[in-house]
Design a protein around this nucleic acid. Structure first.
Length: 502
RNA sequence: GGCGACAUGGCCAAGUGGUAAGGCAAGGGUUUGCAAAACCCUCAUUCGUCGGUUCGAAUCCGACUGUCGCCUCCA
Protein backbone atom coordinates (compact mmCIF):
# COMPACT_ATOMS: atom_id res chain seq x y z
CA UNK A 1 0.00 0.00 0.00
CA UNK A 2 1.20 3.50 -0.60
CA UNK A 3 0.62 6.59 1.47
CA UNK A 4 -1.43 8.41 -1.10
CA UNK A 5 -4.55 6.40 -0.62
CA UNK A 6 -4.71 5.17 2.93
CA UNK A 7 -7.19 2.41 3.46
CA UNK A 8 -10.15 3.44 5.57
CA UNK A 9 -10.38 1.20 8.55
CA UNK A 10 -13.59 0.63 10.40
CA UNK A 11 -13.26 -0.27 14.02
CA UNK A 12 -15.54 -1.01 16.92
CA UNK A 13 -15.32 1.74 19.51
CA UNK A 14 -16.24 0.67 23.02
CA UNK A 15 -17.30 4.17 24.02
CA UNK A 16 -19.76 4.62 21.16
CA UNK A 17 -20.70 0.98 21.11
CA UNK A 18 -20.57 0.78 17.35
CA UNK A 19 -18.31 0.34 14.37
CA UNK A 20 -17.02 3.64 13.04
CA UNK A 21 -14.55 4.77 10.37
CA UNK A 22 -11.12 5.45 11.80
CA UNK A 23 -9.98 9.03 11.30
CA UNK A 24 -6.63 9.74 12.91
CA UNK A 25 -5.87 13.01 14.65
CA UNK A 26 -2.76 13.44 12.54
CA UNK A 27 -3.31 12.37 8.93
CA UNK A 28 -1.61 9.10 8.11
CA UNK A 29 -0.46 8.51 11.66
CA UNK A 30 -1.86 6.36 14.43
CA UNK A 31 -1.16 7.29 18.03
CA UNK A 32 -2.00 4.23 20.10
CA UNK A 33 -1.66 3.54 23.81
CA UNK A 34 -2.25 0.06 25.14
CA UNK A 35 -2.28 -0.62 28.84
CA UNK A 36 0.44 -3.03 29.72
CA UNK A 37 0.66 -4.93 32.92
CA UNK A 38 1.82 -4.93 36.49
CA UNK A 39 4.99 -7.00 36.37
CA UNK A 40 4.50 -9.04 39.50
CA UNK A 41 4.23 -12.52 38.09
CA UNK A 42 4.83 -14.74 35.07
CA UNK A 43 2.78 -13.73 32.03
CA UNK A 44 -0.27 -15.87 31.44
CA UNK A 45 -2.01 -16.76 28.23
CA UNK A 46 -4.36 -13.81 28.54
CA UNK A 47 -1.46 -11.37 28.58
CA UNK A 48 -0.19 -13.11 25.48
CA UNK A 49 -3.50 -12.80 23.69
CA UNK A 50 -3.79 -9.10 24.37
CA UNK A 51 -0.23 -8.56 23.23
CA UNK A 52 -0.80 -10.53 20.03
CA UNK A 53 -4.08 -8.76 19.34
CA UNK A 54 -2.54 -5.31 19.49
CA UNK A 55 0.51 -6.54 17.64
CA UNK A 56 -1.73 -7.57 14.76
CA UNK A 57 -3.60 -4.27 14.93
CA UNK A 58 -0.32 -2.40 14.72
CA UNK A 59 0.78 -4.56 11.79
CA UNK A 60 -2.49 -3.96 9.96
CA UNK A 61 -2.09 -0.20 10.30
CA UNK A 62 1.48 -0.45 9.06
CA UNK A 63 0.39 -2.65 6.16
CA UNK A 64 -2.17 -0.06 5.15
CA UNK A 65 0.51 2.58 5.11
CA UNK A 66 -0.06 4.35 8.39
CA UNK A 67 2.76 5.44 10.63
CA UNK A 68 2.22 4.02 14.08
CA UNK A 69 3.27 5.58 17.33
CA UNK A 70 2.58 2.75 19.73
CA UNK A 71 3.10 3.22 23.43
CA UNK A 72 2.59 0.74 26.24
CA UNK A 73 3.52 0.70 29.89
CA UNK A 74 4.57 -1.21 32.97
CA UNK A 75 2.95 -0.34 36.25
CA UNK A 76 6.10 -1.12 38.14
CA UNK A 77 5.05 0.12 41.55
CA UNK A 78 1.84 -0.79 43.35
CA UNK A 79 0.43 -2.85 46.22
CA UNK A 80 0.80 -6.17 44.40
CA UNK A 81 4.42 -5.54 43.58
CA UNK A 82 5.26 -4.56 47.12
CA UNK A 83 3.48 -7.61 48.51
CA UNK A 84 5.12 -9.98 46.03
CA UNK A 85 8.54 -8.48 46.66
CA UNK A 86 8.18 -9.16 50.37
CA UNK A 87 7.15 -12.68 49.47
CA UNK A 88 10.15 -13.27 47.22
CA UNK A 89 12.51 -11.41 49.53
CA UNK A 90 13.71 -8.78 47.10
CA UNK A 91 13.14 -5.10 46.45
CA UNK A 92 10.03 -4.04 44.54
CA UNK A 93 12.30 -2.57 41.92
CA UNK A 94 14.18 -5.81 41.36
CA UNK A 95 10.97 -7.77 41.34
CA UNK A 96 9.42 -5.56 38.68
CA UNK A 97 12.59 -5.65 36.64
CA UNK A 98 12.67 -9.43 36.75
CA UNK A 99 9.12 -9.83 35.48
CA UNK A 100 9.49 -7.06 32.93
CA UNK A 101 12.43 -8.95 31.50
CA UNK A 102 10.48 -12.19 31.35
CA UNK A 103 7.58 -10.42 29.67
CA UNK A 104 9.82 -8.80 27.08
CA UNK A 105 11.33 -12.17 26.28
CA UNK A 106 7.83 -13.58 25.85
CA UNK A 107 7.03 -10.84 23.36
CA UNK A 108 10.06 -11.79 21.36
CA UNK A 109 9.13 -15.46 21.41
CA UNK A 110 5.68 -14.57 20.14
CA UNK A 111 7.19 -12.42 17.38
CA UNK A 112 5.49 -9.32 18.67
CA UNK A 113 6.74 -6.04 17.29
CA UNK A 114 7.47 -4.20 20.52
CA UNK A 115 5.75 -0.87 21.08
CA UNK A 116 7.95 2.06 20.20
CA UNK A 117 7.74 3.20 23.78
CA UNK A 118 7.45 1.20 26.99
CA UNK A 119 6.87 3.66 29.80
CA UNK A 120 7.49 2.78 33.44
CA UNK A 121 5.62 4.48 36.24
CA UNK A 122 8.72 4.94 38.35
CA UNK A 123 10.27 7.00 35.55
CA UNK A 124 7.31 9.37 35.48
CA UNK A 125 6.72 10.34 39.08
CA UNK A 126 7.20 14.04 38.42
CA UNK A 127 4.65 14.04 35.59
CA UNK A 128 2.20 12.26 37.84
CA UNK A 129 2.73 14.73 40.70
CA UNK A 130 2.21 17.62 38.33
CA UNK A 131 -1.02 16.10 37.11
CA UNK A 132 -2.30 15.51 40.62
CA UNK A 133 -1.47 19.10 41.59
CA UNK A 134 -3.48 20.43 38.68
CA UNK A 135 -6.41 18.16 39.51
CA UNK A 136 -6.39 19.50 43.07
CA UNK A 137 -6.18 23.09 41.91
CA UNK A 138 -9.07 22.59 39.54
CA UNK A 139 -11.16 21.12 42.29
CA UNK A 140 -11.33 17.58 40.93
CA UNK A 141 -9.17 16.09 43.65
CA UNK A 142 -8.46 16.59 47.31
CA UNK A 143 -5.71 15.74 49.75
CA UNK A 144 -6.62 13.76 52.82
CA UNK A 145 -4.05 12.72 55.37
CA UNK A 146 -1.22 12.31 52.87
CA UNK A 147 -3.45 10.56 50.30
CA UNK A 148 -4.93 12.33 47.33
CA UNK A 149 -8.26 11.21 45.93
CA UNK A 150 -10.10 11.96 42.74
CA UNK A 151 -13.60 13.14 43.43
CA UNK A 152 -15.71 11.07 41.09
CA UNK A 153 -18.81 13.19 41.61
CA UNK A 154 -16.96 16.25 40.41
CA UNK A 155 -16.59 14.74 36.96
CA UNK A 156 -20.04 14.70 35.41
CA UNK A 157 -19.50 12.30 32.50
CA UNK A 158 -18.16 9.62 34.85
CA UNK A 159 -19.34 6.21 33.68
CA UNK A 160 -19.61 7.00 30.00
CA UNK A 161 -17.20 4.29 28.89
CA UNK A 162 -18.45 1.47 31.09
CA UNK A 163 -22.04 2.64 30.71
CA UNK A 164 -22.92 2.93 34.32
CA UNK A 165 -24.20 5.65 36.54
CA UNK A 166 -22.83 6.91 39.80
CA UNK A 167 -26.09 5.89 41.38
CA UNK A 168 -25.78 2.24 40.44
CA UNK A 169 -22.11 2.19 41.31
CA UNK A 170 -22.94 3.32 44.82
CA UNK A 171 -24.73 0.05 45.43
CA UNK A 172 -22.15 -2.18 46.99
CA UNK A 173 -19.50 0.51 47.14
CA UNK A 174 -17.84 1.03 50.48
CA UNK A 175 -14.83 2.60 52.06
CA UNK A 176 -12.12 0.18 53.01
CA UNK A 177 -10.62 0.53 56.47
CA UNK A 178 -7.65 2.87 56.35
CA UNK A 179 -8.90 4.84 53.37
CA UNK A 180 -9.52 8.50 53.85
CA UNK A 181 -12.03 9.16 51.09
CA UNK A 182 -14.92 11.55 51.28
CA UNK A 183 -17.00 9.40 49.00
CA UNK A 184 -16.90 5.64 48.49
CA UNK A 185 -16.49 6.01 44.72
CA UNK A 186 -13.43 8.22 44.91
CA UNK A 187 -10.17 6.58 43.97
CA UNK A 188 -6.61 7.25 45.00
CA UNK A 189 -4.35 9.37 42.84
CA UNK A 190 -1.58 9.37 45.41
CA UNK A 191 -1.01 7.11 48.36
CA UNK A 192 0.88 8.12 51.47
CA UNK A 193 3.80 5.81 52.14
CA UNK A 194 3.50 3.20 54.84
CA UNK A 195 6.66 2.35 56.78
CA UNK A 196 9.11 0.35 54.69
CA UNK A 197 7.42 1.05 51.39
CA UNK A 198 9.19 2.66 48.45
CA UNK A 199 8.20 6.30 48.25
CA UNK A 200 8.82 9.59 46.52
CA UNK A 201 8.72 13.14 47.86
CA UNK A 202 5.59 15.07 46.99
CA UNK A 203 3.67 18.17 48.10
CA UNK A 204 1.60 15.79 50.25
CA UNK A 205 4.55 14.07 51.87
CA UNK A 206 6.23 10.83 50.96
CA UNK A 207 4.12 8.52 48.90
CA UNK A 208 3.55 6.82 45.57
CA UNK A 209 1.08 7.01 42.72
CA UNK A 210 -2.22 5.17 42.86
CA UNK A 211 -3.28 2.86 40.09
CA UNK A 212 -4.84 4.56 36.99
CA UNK A 213 -3.06 7.91 37.13
CA UNK A 214 0.09 6.59 35.50
CA UNK A 215 -1.60 5.67 32.24
CA UNK A 216 -3.27 9.05 31.93
CA UNK A 217 -0.01 10.86 32.63
CA UNK A 218 2.14 8.77 30.34
CA UNK A 219 -0.26 8.54 27.43
CA UNK A 220 -0.74 12.31 27.44
CA UNK A 221 3.00 12.83 27.66
CA UNK A 222 3.89 10.58 24.74
CA UNK A 223 0.83 10.86 22.53
CA UNK A 224 -0.70 14.23 23.38
CA UNK A 225 -4.30 15.23 23.79
CA UNK A 226 -7.05 13.37 21.92
CA UNK A 227 -4.73 10.68 20.69
CA UNK A 228 -6.26 8.04 18.48
CA UNK A 229 -6.57 4.68 20.13
CA UNK A 230 -6.53 3.60 23.71
CA UNK A 231 -6.55 -0.14 24.11
CA UNK A 232 -6.35 -2.91 26.62
CA UNK A 233 -8.22 -6.00 27.61
CA UNK A 234 -11.90 -5.85 28.42
CA UNK A 235 -11.40 -6.16 32.14
CA UNK A 236 -9.77 -2.74 32.14
CA UNK A 237 -12.90 -0.94 31.00
CA UNK A 238 -13.97 -0.52 34.57
CA UNK A 239 -12.57 0.95 36.65
CA UNK A 240 -9.20 1.51 35.05
CA UNK A 241 -10.14 3.15 31.77
CA UNK A 242 -13.17 4.88 33.24
CA UNK A 243 -10.89 6.49 35.79
CA UNK A 244 -8.31 7.35 33.19
CA UNK A 245 -10.89 9.28 31.23
CA UNK A 246 -12.01 11.15 34.33
CA UNK A 247 -8.49 12.16 35.34
CA UNK A 248 -7.26 13.00 31.91
CA UNK A 249 -10.23 15.02 30.74
CA UNK A 250 -10.53 16.80 34.07
CA UNK A 251 -6.84 17.61 33.97
CA UNK A 252 -6.46 18.73 30.38
CA UNK A 253 -9.93 19.98 29.66
CA UNK A 254 -9.48 18.27 26.32
CA UNK A 255 -12.22 15.93 25.26
CA UNK A 256 -11.98 13.23 24.21
CA UNK A 257 -8.96 11.91 26.04
CA UNK A 258 -8.76 9.20 23.41
CA UNK A 259 -10.69 9.19 20.14
CA UNK A 260 -11.32 5.45 20.03
CA UNK A 261 -11.33 2.71 22.63
CA UNK A 262 -10.47 -0.84 21.62
CA UNK A 263 -10.78 -3.75 24.00
CA UNK A 264 -9.51 -7.27 23.56
CA UNK A 265 -11.66 -10.14 24.75
CA UNK A 266 -10.26 -12.25 27.50
CA UNK A 267 -9.15 -15.80 27.57
CA UNK A 268 -11.35 -18.20 29.44
CA UNK A 269 -10.58 -21.57 30.89
CA UNK A 270 -13.57 -23.91 30.74
CA UNK A 271 -15.51 -20.82 29.69
CA UNK A 272 -14.59 -19.05 32.90
CA UNK A 273 -12.43 -15.99 32.88
CA UNK A 274 -8.91 -16.50 34.10
CA UNK A 275 -8.68 -14.50 37.22
CA UNK A 276 -6.20 -13.92 39.95
CA UNK A 277 -8.88 -14.24 42.59
CA UNK A 278 -10.10 -17.58 41.27
CA UNK A 279 -6.56 -18.73 40.67
CA UNK A 280 -7.31 -20.42 37.34
CA UNK A 281 -4.48 -18.79 35.47
CA UNK A 282 -2.69 -20.64 32.72
CA UNK A 283 0.88 -19.57 32.22
CA UNK A 284 2.11 -18.62 28.77
CA UNK A 285 5.14 -20.83 29.25
CA UNK A 286 2.85 -23.84 29.69
CA UNK A 287 1.11 -23.14 26.40
CA UNK A 288 4.44 -22.67 24.65
CA UNK A 289 5.64 -26.00 25.97
CA UNK A 290 2.74 -27.58 24.08
CA UNK A 291 2.81 -25.72 20.78
CA UNK A 292 5.01 -23.54 18.62
CA UNK A 293 4.47 -19.77 18.98
CA UNK A 294 3.04 -19.62 15.46
CA UNK A 295 0.37 -22.12 16.46
CA UNK A 296 -0.52 -20.06 19.50
CA UNK A 297 -0.76 -16.96 17.34
CA UNK A 298 -2.98 -18.78 14.87
CA UNK A 299 -5.16 -19.91 17.77
CA UNK A 300 -5.49 -16.33 18.98
CA UNK A 301 -6.26 -14.70 15.66
CA UNK A 302 -8.65 -17.30 14.34
CA UNK A 303 -11.21 -15.65 16.59
CA UNK A 304 -12.17 -11.99 16.37
CA UNK A 305 -10.02 -10.00 18.80
CA UNK A 306 -12.98 -8.83 20.85
CA UNK A 307 -14.61 -12.21 21.43
CA UNK A 308 -13.96 -14.35 24.43
CA UNK A 309 -11.59 -17.18 23.62
CA UNK A 310 -11.72 -20.45 25.46
CA UNK A 311 -8.34 -21.97 26.02
CA UNK A 312 -8.51 -25.68 25.45
CA UNK A 313 -5.89 -28.15 24.31
CA UNK A 314 -8.32 -29.53 21.76
CA UNK A 315 -8.77 -26.07 20.23
CA UNK A 316 -5.02 -25.55 20.14
CA UNK A 317 -4.75 -28.79 18.24
CA UNK A 318 -7.35 -27.67 15.73
CA UNK A 319 -5.39 -24.48 15.23
CA UNK A 320 -2.25 -26.50 14.62
CA UNK A 321 -3.92 -28.63 11.97
CA UNK A 322 -5.27 -25.60 10.15
CA UNK A 323 -1.97 -23.82 10.23
CA UNK A 324 -0.23 -26.95 9.07
CA UNK A 325 -2.45 -27.02 5.99
CA UNK A 326 -1.27 -23.53 5.10
CA UNK A 327 2.36 -24.32 5.83
CA UNK A 328 2.33 -27.48 3.72
CA UNK A 329 0.89 -25.56 0.81
CA UNK A 330 3.57 -22.88 1.08
CA UNK A 331 6.25 -25.57 1.15
CA UNK A 332 4.62 -27.27 -1.79
CA UNK A 333 4.79 -24.05 -3.77
CA UNK A 334 8.46 -23.79 -2.96
CA UNK A 335 9.18 -27.31 -4.07
CA UNK A 336 7.03 -27.09 -7.14
CA UNK A 337 8.99 -27.30 -10.32
CA UNK A 338 7.05 -28.29 -13.34
CA UNK A 339 7.94 -27.72 -16.91
CA UNK A 340 7.37 -24.06 -17.63
CA UNK A 341 3.75 -24.26 -18.55
CA UNK A 342 1.62 -21.28 -19.27
CA UNK A 343 -0.77 -20.00 -16.67
CA UNK A 344 -4.26 -21.24 -17.25
CA UNK A 345 -5.63 -20.08 -13.97
CA UNK A 346 -6.52 -16.51 -14.71
CA UNK A 347 -4.38 -15.89 -11.68
CA UNK A 348 -4.08 -12.15 -12.19
CA UNK A 349 -7.71 -11.33 -11.75
CA UNK A 350 -7.98 -13.85 -8.97
CA UNK A 351 -5.04 -12.29 -7.21
CA UNK A 352 -6.73 -8.94 -7.45
CA UNK A 353 -9.87 -10.32 -5.88
CA UNK A 354 -8.12 -12.23 -3.13
CA UNK A 355 -5.93 -9.31 -2.18
CA UNK A 356 -8.98 -7.15 -2.06
CA UNK A 357 -10.90 -9.66 0.07
CA UNK A 358 -7.96 -9.98 2.42
CA UNK A 359 -7.58 -6.22 2.77
CA UNK A 360 -11.28 -5.66 3.26
CA UNK A 361 -11.38 -8.27 5.99
CA UNK A 362 -8.58 -6.60 7.90
CA UNK A 363 -9.98 -3.13 7.32
CA UNK A 364 -13.31 -4.21 8.75
CA UNK A 365 -12.55 -4.12 12.45
CA UNK A 366 -9.36 -6.16 12.05
CA UNK A 367 -11.30 -9.28 11.11
CA UNK A 368 -8.46 -11.79 11.11
CA UNK A 369 -10.70 -14.89 11.01
CA UNK A 370 -12.13 -13.68 7.74
CA UNK A 371 -8.67 -12.87 6.39
CA UNK A 372 -7.61 -16.40 7.25
CA UNK A 373 -10.65 -17.58 5.32
CA UNK A 374 -9.28 -15.81 2.25
CA UNK A 375 -5.92 -17.49 2.71
CA UNK A 376 -7.61 -20.86 3.08
CA UNK A 377 -9.51 -20.24 -0.11
CA UNK A 378 -6.23 -19.51 -1.87
CA UNK A 379 -4.73 -22.64 -0.36
CA UNK A 380 -7.40 -24.78 -1.89
CA UNK A 381 -7.10 -23.23 -5.35
CA UNK A 382 -3.32 -23.28 -5.35
CA UNK A 383 -3.27 -26.94 -4.44
CA UNK A 384 -5.57 -27.66 -7.33
CA UNK A 385 -3.40 -25.73 -9.74
CA UNK A 386 -0.39 -27.64 -8.54
CA UNK A 387 -2.21 -30.92 -8.93
CA UNK A 388 -3.39 -30.03 -12.40
CA UNK A 389 0.04 -28.65 -13.34
CA UNK A 390 -1.48 -25.39 -14.49
CA UNK A 391 1.08 -23.29 -12.66
CA UNK A 392 4.32 -22.21 -14.23
CA UNK A 393 7.46 -22.12 -12.14
CA UNK A 394 7.22 -18.36 -12.08
CA UNK A 395 3.63 -18.48 -10.90
CA UNK A 396 4.51 -20.91 -8.15
CA UNK A 397 7.25 -18.58 -7.08
CA UNK A 398 4.87 -15.66 -7.17
CA UNK A 399 2.25 -17.38 -5.03
CA UNK A 400 4.91 -18.61 -2.67
CA UNK A 401 5.84 -15.01 -1.94
CA UNK A 402 2.25 -13.84 -1.80
CA UNK A 403 1.33 -16.49 0.77
CA UNK A 404 4.34 -15.61 2.85
CA UNK A 405 3.48 -11.95 2.64
CA UNK A 406 -0.01 -12.56 3.91
CA UNK A 407 1.26 -14.63 6.80
CA UNK A 408 3.81 -11.97 7.69
CA UNK A 409 1.13 -9.31 7.74
CA UNK A 410 -0.63 -11.42 10.34
CA UNK A 411 2.62 -11.57 12.27
CA UNK A 412 3.74 -15.15 11.72
CA UNK A 413 7.45 -15.60 12.01
CA UNK A 414 9.09 -17.80 9.35
CA UNK A 415 5.90 -19.71 9.02
CA UNK A 416 7.55 -22.45 6.96
CA UNK A 417 9.70 -23.37 9.93
CA UNK A 418 6.77 -23.83 12.26
CA UNK A 419 7.48 -26.90 14.32
CA UNK A 420 4.49 -29.11 14.90
CA UNK A 421 6.31 -31.68 16.99
CA UNK A 422 4.59 -32.67 20.20
CA UNK A 423 7.70 -33.91 21.95
CA UNK A 424 10.92 -32.15 22.84
CA UNK A 425 13.97 -32.90 20.74
CA UNK A 426 15.57 -34.78 23.65
CA UNK A 427 12.53 -37.01 23.97
CA UNK A 428 12.46 -37.70 20.27
CA UNK A 429 16.16 -38.49 20.12
CA UNK A 430 15.85 -40.90 23.03
CA UNK A 431 12.93 -42.67 21.43
CA UNK A 432 14.67 -42.81 18.07
CA UNK A 433 17.67 -44.47 19.70
CA UNK A 434 15.38 -47.13 21.10
CA UNK A 435 13.90 -47.67 17.67
CA UNK A 436 17.30 -47.91 16.04
CA UNK A 437 18.47 -50.43 18.59
CA UNK A 438 15.33 -52.40 18.05
CA UNK A 439 15.98 -52.56 14.32
CA UNK A 440 19.68 -53.23 14.83
CA UNK A 441 20.88 -49.97 13.32
CA UNK A 442 24.16 -48.68 14.73
CA UNK A 443 23.64 -45.62 16.88
CA UNK A 444 26.28 -42.97 16.53
CA UNK A 445 26.22 -40.46 19.38
CA UNK A 446 27.23 -37.72 16.95
CA UNK A 447 24.23 -38.32 14.74
CA UNK A 448 21.77 -35.54 14.25
CA UNK A 449 18.05 -35.98 14.63
CA UNK A 450 17.73 -35.76 10.87
CA UNK A 451 20.32 -38.47 10.33
CA UNK A 452 18.64 -40.75 12.81
CA UNK A 453 15.29 -40.43 11.12
CA UNK A 454 16.86 -40.95 7.73
CA UNK A 455 18.55 -44.11 8.93
CA UNK A 456 15.16 -45.52 9.82
CA UNK A 457 13.64 -44.24 6.59
CA UNK A 458 16.41 -46.00 4.67
CA UNK A 459 15.78 -49.24 6.47
CA UNK A 460 12.11 -48.92 5.57
CA UNK A 461 13.08 -48.22 1.98
CA UNK A 462 15.08 -51.43 1.85
CA UNK A 463 12.13 -53.35 3.27
CA UNK A 464 9.83 -51.86 0.66
CA UNK A 465 12.19 -52.77 -2.13
CA UNK A 466 12.15 -56.31 -0.82
CA UNK A 467 8.38 -56.17 -0.57
CA UNK A 468 8.52 -56.66 3.17
CA UNK A 469 5.58 -54.38 3.65
CA UNK A 470 4.67 -55.61 7.11
CA UNK A 471 8.02 -54.49 8.47
CA UNK A 472 8.14 -51.29 6.44
CA UNK A 473 4.68 -50.32 7.62
CA UNK A 474 5.71 -51.12 11.16
CA UNK A 475 8.63 -48.69 10.94
CA UNK A 476 6.39 -46.02 9.50
CA UNK A 477 3.93 -46.57 12.29
CA UNK A 478 6.64 -46.43 14.94
CA UNK A 479 7.77 -43.08 13.61
CA UNK A 480 4.18 -41.96 13.51
CA UNK A 481 3.99 -42.59 17.23
CA UNK A 482 6.67 -39.91 17.58
CA UNK A 483 4.57 -37.57 15.42
CA UNK A 484 6.91 -38.12 12.51
CA UNK A 485 4.84 -38.56 9.37
CA UNK A 486 6.37 -40.15 6.30
CA UNK A 487 5.29 -39.36 2.80
CA UNK A 488 6.31 -41.41 -0.21
CA UNK A 489 6.68 -39.27 -3.30
CA UNK A 490 8.15 -39.81 -6.73
CA UNK A 491 11.31 -38.14 -5.55
CA UNK A 492 11.59 -40.39 -2.52
CA UNK A 493 10.38 -40.44 1.03
CA UNK A 494 10.12 -37.25 3.04
CA UNK A 495 9.28 -36.82 6.68
CA UNK A 496 7.77 -34.06 8.75
CA UNK A 497 6.66 -33.50 12.30
CA UNK A 498 2.94 -33.28 12.46
CA UNK A 499 0.66 -32.74 15.36
CA UNK A 500 -1.23 -35.98 14.97
CA UNK A 501 -3.20 -36.96 18.01
CA UNK A 502 -2.57 -40.58 18.81
C1' G B 1 -29.62 -7.48 43.92
C1' G B 2 -28.16 -3.72 39.84
C1' C B 3 -26.02 -3.47 34.95
C1' G B 4 -24.04 -5.75 30.55
C1' A B 5 -22.34 -9.33 26.89
C1' C B 6 -23.07 -13.64 24.35
C1' A B 7 -26.13 -18.08 22.34
C1' U B 8 -24.55 -20.20 14.37
C1' G B 9 -23.71 -27.89 12.11
C1' G B 10 -19.99 -33.14 16.24
C1' C B 11 -16.01 -29.16 17.64
C1' C B 12 -13.79 -24.11 16.55
C1' A B 13 -15.57 -19.88 13.95
C1' A B 14 -17.05 -15.57 10.15
C1' G B 15 -21.45 -13.30 8.74
C1' U B 16 -25.46 -7.55 12.00
C1' G B 17 -31.72 -6.64 6.81
C1' G B 18 -31.44 -9.88 0.94
C1' U B 19 -31.68 -15.48 1.53
C1' A B 20 -25.68 -19.55 6.10
C1' A B 21 -17.40 -18.05 4.64
C1' G B 22 -13.59 -21.00 6.38
C1' G B 23 -11.01 -24.67 9.47
C1' C B 24 -10.99 -29.28 12.48
C1' A B 25 -13.53 -33.96 12.70
C1' A B 26 -16.59 -37.62 9.86
C1' G B 27 -18.29 -40.53 5.39
C1' G B 28 -17.60 -41.70 -0.07
C1' G B 29 -14.20 -41.27 -4.33
C1' U B 30 -9.27 -40.17 -7.17
C1' U B 31 -4.13 -41.24 -5.99
C1' U B 32 -0.96 -45.01 -3.21
C1' G B 33 1.81 -51.75 -2.37
C1' C B 34 -0.84 -49.78 1.94
C1' A B 35 -0.50 -44.97 3.88
C1' A B 36 0.45 -39.65 4.17
C1' A B 37 -0.32 -35.17 1.59
C1' A B 38 -3.49 -33.19 -2.16
C1' C B 39 -7.89 -32.91 -5.07
C1' C B 40 -13.37 -34.08 -6.02
C1' C B 41 -18.15 -35.22 -3.57
C1' U B 42 -21.29 -35.41 1.02
C1' C B 43 -22.01 -33.01 5.77
C1' A B 44 -26.94 -26.38 9.26
C1' U B 45 -34.08 -25.30 4.35
C1' U B 46 -31.22 -23.39 9.21
C1' C B 47 -28.68 -19.63 13.07
C1' G B 48 -31.14 -20.96 22.00
C1' U B 49 -37.01 -20.75 22.49
C1' C B 50 -41.59 -18.09 21.53
C1' G B 51 -43.82 -13.89 19.49
C1' G B 52 -43.51 -9.10 16.59
C1' U B 53 -41.72 -5.46 12.59
C1' U B 54 -40.59 -6.11 7.22
C1' C B 55 -41.71 -7.85 0.47
C1' G B 56 -37.67 -10.20 3.01
C1' A B 57 -34.30 -11.38 9.62
C1' A B 58 -29.13 -15.44 11.99
C1' U B 59 -29.08 -10.14 11.47
C1' C B 60 -34.16 -5.10 14.04
C1' C B 61 -37.90 -5.12 18.51
C1' G B 62 -40.13 -7.76 22.88
C1' A B 63 -40.50 -11.88 26.22
C1' C B 64 -38.36 -16.27 27.97
C1' U B 65 -34.29 -19.88 28.73
C1' G B 66 -29.14 -20.72 29.18
C1' U B 67 -23.92 -19.32 29.67
C1' C B 68 -20.47 -15.79 31.06
C1' G B 69 -18.93 -11.14 32.90
C1' C B 70 -18.76 -6.32 35.58
C1' C B 71 -20.30 -3.75 40.29
C1' U B 72 -13.25 -6.15 44.52
C1' C B 73 -7.43 -7.33 42.09
C1' C B 74 -7.06 -8.55 37.00
C1' A B 75 -4.52 -8.57 30.03
Amino acid sequence: MNNEALKTIRLYDTLLGEKVPFEPRDPGKVNMYVCGLTPSNYPHIGHARTAVVFDVIQRIFLYFGYKVNYCSNFTDIDDKIIAKANEEGCSPKDLAQKYIQIYLESLETLNIKPPGCFAKVTDHISEIIEMVEVLISKGFAYESGGDVYFSVRSFKPYGKLSKRSIKELLVGARIEPGEKKRDPLDFALWKAAKPGEPSWESPWGKGRPGWHIECSAMSLKYLGGSFDIHGGAQDLIFPHHENEIAQAEAYSGIEPFSKYWIHAGWVTLNKEKMSKSIGNVFKLSEALSLVHPNVLRYFFISTLYSSPLDYDVKNLHQAAKSLERIVLTIKRLFDYSSSAQKVKTGADSILEKWRNDFDEALADNFNTPQAIGVIMHAVKEINRWIKELTLSKEDANFWYHQMNTWMEILGFNEVENTNFALFSEEEIVAKLKDLMNKHKIDVDEQQSLDEMIKALVNLRKKCREEKQFVLSDQIRNELFQLNIVLEDTKEGTTYRFSEELQ
